[in-house]
Amino acid sequence: MDKLMHEKKIIQQKIEELNYTTLRVSVFNGRNKGREDWQTRIEYDEGEKVYLVYSLGDRASIIGKIRTFENFEEAEQCLFEILDLTVKYNRLQVMTNEEPEYPSPLWNKP
């Protein structure tokens, strides 16, 4: 099995285990494919041999910085830290009667 396909499977399995399937996540789909507002992305740059982890905001523009990692484990950890913060932030938005970034049943759980 291709290395990236194996790593993609690991991430997707963890997303399912955490019940994060309603989060907007792109895993190794190419930097310009399937971009969506408020999406968290992990990509692999073949030329530089690095993993890229970043988030998109309104109109699928990059927010924050693109983090680069030379190994999969660090990139995966960063991805899930961002996803955890996404859940916490949007729960707070709902709790304070503000609009979340996008609809998800995760925002309504304590």
Rank of each mutant, 00 (worst) to 15 (best):
V53L: 02
S104E: 03
E74V: 02
Y89K: 14
E17P: 00
E70M: 11
L18F: 09
P100C: 01
P100F: 00
E7M: 10
L85N: 15
L56Q: 05
L79W: 04
E48A: 10
D58A: 12
L85T: 10
R31E: 15
T96Y: 12
V87R: 04
P100S: 00
C78N: 09
F69A: 01
F80A: 08
S55H: 05
V50D: 03
S61R: 14
M95N: 14
G64P: 08
L83D: 02
R67V: 02
E7T: 00
P110K: 15
M1V: 14
W38G: 03
S104I: 07
G30S: 08
H6M: 13
Y102S: 03
C78I: 06
I66P: 00
Y102C: 03
K33Y: 13
Y89Q: 11
N32G: 06
E7C: 04
I63L: 10
I63D: 06
Y89W: 13
G47E: 13
R35K: 15
L18T: 00
R35S: 07
K33F: 10
D58I: 11
I66N: 03
Y51K: 01
R41S: 07
R31G: 13
D58P: 06
E81V: 09
N97G: 05
K9R: 10
L4F: 03
L23I: 07
M5L: 14
D2M: 09
L18P: 00
D2Q: 12
G64Y: 04
E81Y: 06
D45C: 08
E46K: 11
Q77R: 15
H6E: 15
L23W: 04
N90I: 06
N19H: 13
G47T: 09
E70Q: 11
N29I: 13
L4R: 01
T21C: 13
I82S: 08
L23D: 02
C78Q: 10
T86Y: 03
E17R: 09
